[in-house]
């Protein structure tokens, strides 16, 4: 158990550091991929199978691929980013301290009040056969929670994402030259057909 915790933990932190310090953007993506995978392993050790898989499918499999797509397209043949002047020279340190303190408070608070249930996975596994509905973190469990207790937040999130998608289409979906050409061609054809119908050949 402790190896299952410490190995991914070290990998997680190391890859996170690599993500923010890598000189090439693509290296950052790879580091982030390692990070996500280590995180998925963590979820697995917490018996949250579904969450682990979704972590891999959604974050590593879709979102990060898009990152890679954009970075590979934009940065190919470009030299590694040189370290330019820091754009946040004065507030960087205070901001970092604030975030560290806030995180510390969250962790301390959680540890003090036992808000986070940290059940032993072995006990959970024995609670029912694999695949049964009452196993913590299983698909059934997750789905039931999502569509009953947390239905409202779920729907609101869906709505927000929908808004984002529509926004992207509105912003980016101008008539491209290709579409414009096709539309003009279609209009010409239609006009000709009408003219033929009107006047005969």
């Amino acid at each position: 158990m402790s190896a299952l915790f410490w190995v991914p933990a070290v990998v997680l932190i190391a890859s996170a550091l690599w993500t923010i310090t890598a000189s090439k953007p693509v290296y950052s993506v790879v580091a982030l991929l390692v990070n996500f995978t280590a995180l998925a392993v963590f979820f697995l050790t917490l018996s949250a199978e579904f969450l682990a898989m979704i972590q891999l499918i959604v974050y590593s499999g879709a979102i990060l691929v898009l990152f890679l797509f954009v970075i590979a397209l934009l940065s190919s043949g470009v030299a590694p980013l040189s370290l330019g002047p820091n754009r946040l020279p004065r507030i960087a340190l205070p901001a970092a301290i604030c975030i560290a303190v806030a995180l510390g408070l969250v962790v301390a608070g959680a540890a003090a009040t036992h808000v986070l249930p940290v059940p032993a996975p072995a006990a959970l596994r024995s609670a029912g056969p694999a695949g049964a509905a009452n196993v913590f973190g299983s698909v059934q469990d997750f789905g039931r929670a999502l569509f009953t207790t947390y239905l409202l937040p779920f729907e609101v999130t869906a709505l927000i994402l929908m808004v984002a998608v529509i926004g992207v289409i509105v912003l980016a979906g101008e008539e491209t030259p290709y579409v414009a050409t096709r539309r003009r061609a279609a209009e010409t054809r239609k006009a000709m057909r009408e003219a033929i119908a009107r006047e005969g050949d």
């Binding site: 998925a40 199978e49 898989m53 979704i54 499918i57 590593s60 499999g61």
Partner: peptide, 9 residues
């Protein structure tokens, strides 16, 4: 889901 996850990698 595991299959999907690994294949997406």
């Amino acid at each position: 889901l595991f299959l999907l996850a690994i294949m997406s990698l």
